[in-house]
Amino acid sequence: MYRIKFKIAIILGFTGLINFQSFAQNNWDVPADKKSKNSNIEFNSGTAKEGEGIYNTNCKSCHGDIGKNNSLQSLKPVPPDLSSAQSKALLDGELFHILNVGRGLMPSFKEVLPESDRWKVIAYMRSYDKDYVQIISKTDPAKANLVKIKMVFDSINSKLNVEVVANEKAGIVKLKNAEIALFVTRHFGKMQLDKTLRTDNNGNASFDFPKDLPGDKVGNVELIVRVNDEIYGEIESISKFKIAVPTDKPSLTEKRAMWNVLAKAPIWLILLYLSGVLLATGVILYIIYNLYKLSKSNNNLKN
């Protein structure tokens, strides 16, 4: 009797825990300043269409097709269908924040997708909500064009120093307290170096640059600095530096190998194959010649 009660207690305890968890999962606790953030991209059929492509590559595998309630049920918590009332109730800023930070099994997309792509996903999601009216951000997207990012490598301290300024008509403005991150291009996508920082009062930020980062044959790497400012929006700058460790690893497809293309197949294999084919073809041709002789031999007899 005691054991049954104990079991019931455990079951109740677990269900309670699960309920609590799912409650906690729904509550994203988005900070007020993030909540009020809005897109300066207009949500229309064009941006929604672009967003659909981005959604299908990055989100669909878990969230399923919007409106079809076919999200991946085996995940805990179950990813919501993004046309659900619960999702619709979220503000644009809240959705943007969720995309940026992620939680549990949902990854952060902040460094994976550029800001415009993240907004387009939200545009696609909103296209399923007929009652939705967009509040467009008052920030001017053209302002981003004024921003200049200067990167200087300090080889002694192995640091990459970045200065972010805007060429306003009134003069040069230094971007203070802007979010700034450094990436390096790799074979697939990009990798973040150091942490995401904020610029100081002079618009400067300094990243630790790893001493063992492999570059190409001469040590070139492609660095990307991404700045996100309240007024100027998101700006990206790409430049090449010859500051990494020169790496000359022969490609696995350079020499003859089993996994290579036909032109680079192992010689012994080609010989083995060809000798078999030639030998068999030779015998067959000889036999066909025999048949030819056979058909002629009778004619000779007659003549």
Binding site: A280, N290, S295, S297, N298
Partner: peptide
Amino acid sequence: LNWNGTLEQEKLLKQSTRMLAILIIPVAMA
């Protein structure tokens, strides 16, 4: 093929059949 059962034809036929019989063994194994 103008078969008339001459000795030469018999010989060619036997030889060709025999060669094929030998060739077909490695090919079939392969």
